[in-house]
Amino acid sequence: MGLLSKKDSKLILDPLADNNPITIQVLGICSALAITAQLKPSIVMAISVLFVMGVGNVVISLMRNIIPSKIRIIVQLIVVATLVIIVDQVLKAFAYELSKELSVFIGLIITNCIIMGRFEAFALGNGPWRSFLDGIGNAAGYGVILVIVGFFRELLGSGTLFGFPVLGNPVTKTGLYGIGYENNGFMVLPPMALIVVGIIIWVQRSRNKELIEEN
């Protein structure tokens, strides 16, 4: 990365793996679980959060010296709420079906702990450019997990990706279904999201022993 210094690129790359907001920092879990039954809403959600995080972090970072610390939470909430209203209105205008499907979870980006967490931990103490990178990095780390969970739940649960059947047709018994494969209907039910994330954590921590918790 010629554009970014080594320290800056660390800001983006760290949250993708060893400092992932979902699996390590335990932030922003609510929305990660509720909307990942299919790949498409997961990606839309990831992009929405990317936008809110990137812009929000810059705004907060620009205002960091004039916000009185006593009311900073309210100021942060108002900034996020404004950005989320923009996302919500854009989605309603250009992807109405999808915005119906995501229903209240777009609104819940406001209280997504990743956003508040990064505002508090990073944007309040750093300049706009670094805050922007940090925001993008963390939102991307969040998006990666969302896409992984959405991918497996849609593939194993309904045998489709983005709504296209990739494993054959379950009714006419073509493709994999011809040799006796069945969809696992359980995967699309909400509780399985938790278990899939649990397994991702398991895999990640087996690969990197330093992340293992005491108990």
């Binding site: 335990v26 039910l189 509780p191 399985m192 278990i195 994330v197 649990g198 895999v203 921590r205 005491e214």
Partner: peptide
């Protein structure tokens, strides 16, 4: 805390899976 959880699952991982099982129960 008194049980022998596989090391990579300790803490967060096992909590996720337990919550998933509880959610299945609540269904």
């Amino acid at each position: 805390r008194y049980s022998n959880v596989p090391a990579p699952l300790r803490g967060l991982g096992i909590t996720f899976i337990i919550t998933g099982l509880m959610a299945i129960g609540f269904m």
